[in-house]
């Protein structure tokens, strides 16, 4: 199976409460909390598109957009 290519990490800054769940559970260390305690995709190129962060965010603040999805919706 081909690794899904991630187009963008959409993170709603005003919804994120900085709990750190996405940071700890991301298997690739993609996410970090910035100085304002908001999640940011610091190592976006490492993302494998598993969506763990999206599904485990208690604040519904993350949406992962994959390349393929973008192409099929075009």
């Amino acid at each position: 199976m081909e690794k899904p290519k991630v187009k963008e990490h959409h993170i709603k800054r005003s919804w994120c409460k900085g709990c750190g769940i996405c940071v700890s559970l991301c298997p690739k260390g993609v996410l970090e909390l910035n100085e304002e305690h908001k999640a940011v995709p610091a190592n976006a190129s490492q993302c494998v598109g598993c969506r763990t962060c999206e599904r485990m965010c208690p604040d519904l603040a993350i949406a992962i957009e994959l390349e393929q999805e973008h192409e099929t919706t075009d």
Partner: peptide, 29 residues
Amino acid sequence: MAIDQYLRKRFFPHIWCAGCGHGIVLNNM
């Protein structure tokens, strides 16, 4: 996001504390 259409976005950010499991239930429900 796929689930945005089911949310009353005007009430977000929600009142639950940072890291509350109830938000994860809402997300996956």
